[in-house]
């Protein structure tokens, strides 16, 4: 039993070490050699544009549902007029970034993990390496930077769509104009509501890209390992999103809300 635990611990530590090496290789490759602009733009399109519908729809439904769920309690407290503000603050600070990141973890981390995993299995990464090209620059740097940039953009768009969903829900029950609703939303927000959320989503995006690339790049050579890489990428990226979120909330509270 103790031996098993020790083996597990050693394996875990090896994994941590490998991730550290992978991170340093990623970081080094951002600045050395030529940057793969065309592949980076293609990844931004694949990651950003192709995820827009999914993130938008999810955010819209969440905004709508939140208003429908909150309304009875707010009416009981006589705080019905606070609904736009409540939704805006909760969506911009927390719901929007986390929902977007979780959706992206499911869609993007798995896709990167499976793609790189299958490239590993079919020796495409080895072929790239022995040809003298740099697979870290072409495959990893472009994907991680694309997720780091596109996830915050998706989250911002998701925020707007989520607030619009909230407006539609509120409009079913209360007679509120579009301009009044958005005026109430915007006037209740401050710059410090946007900034930490934006920074947080950049870290979410980085985690999604990094985990997807790491899992794919280090998958074993077998078809089963492609599935494992994709699955493991989603689980690990989702976990990291919550860990980063918990940490970010603490830091934000200390810096801005005390």
């Amino acid at each position: 039993m103790a031996e098993q635990a020790l083996t597990g611990y050693k394996k875990w530590m090896e994994g941590v070490g490998e991730q550290g090496v992978f991170f340093s290789r990623f970081f080094r490759n951002i600045f050395t050699g030529g940057f793969e602009w065309s592949e980076f733009v293609r990844q931004c399109y694949e990651i950003g544009y192709k995820s827009f519908m999914l993130v938008g729809l999810t955010s819209f439904i969440m905004g709508l549902v939140l208003i429908l769920q909150l309304r009875p309690s707010m009416v009981d407290m006589g705080a019905e007029s606070m609904l736009p503000k409540t939704l805006a603050v909760s969506f911009i600070r927390e719901m929007g970034p986390v929902i977007t990141a979780i959706i992206c973890a499911g869609k993007i981390a798995s896709s990167i993990g499976a793609e790189l995993g299958s490239m590993k299995v079919t020796e495409q990464i080895d072929a790239m390496e022995v040809s003298g090209a740099n697979p870290m620059q072409y495959l990893v740097v472009t994907r991680i930077l694309a997720t780091t940039i596109m996830v915050p953009i998706l989250a911002l768009m998701g925020d707007v769509i989520g607030l619009f969903g909230g407006f539609l829900a509120l409009n079913f029950t209360d007679d509120i104009s579009f301009s009044l609703y958005f005026h109430k939303c915007i006037s209740s927000l401050e710059f410090i509501d946007f900034l930490p959320a934006l920074v947080k989503t950049m870290f979410f995006g980085f985690a999604i890209g990094f985990v997807g690339c790491y899992k794919g790049f280090h998958s074993d050579k077998g078809t089963e390992s492609v599935g494992l890489a994709a699955n493991s990428a989603v689980v690990t990226a989702s976990l990291w999103i919550f860990v980063i979120d918990a940490f970010a909330v603490q830091v934000t509270s200390i810096l801005f809300y005390r």
Binding site: M119, T122, E123, Q124, D126, A127, M128, E129, V130, S131, G132
Partner: peptide, 18 residues
Amino acid sequence: KALRTKVGFLFQSGALYD
């Protein structure tokens, strides 16, 4: 890297970038 430009390697599967 310089060595690998002088040594070609044909993989069993062809390893084309799909």
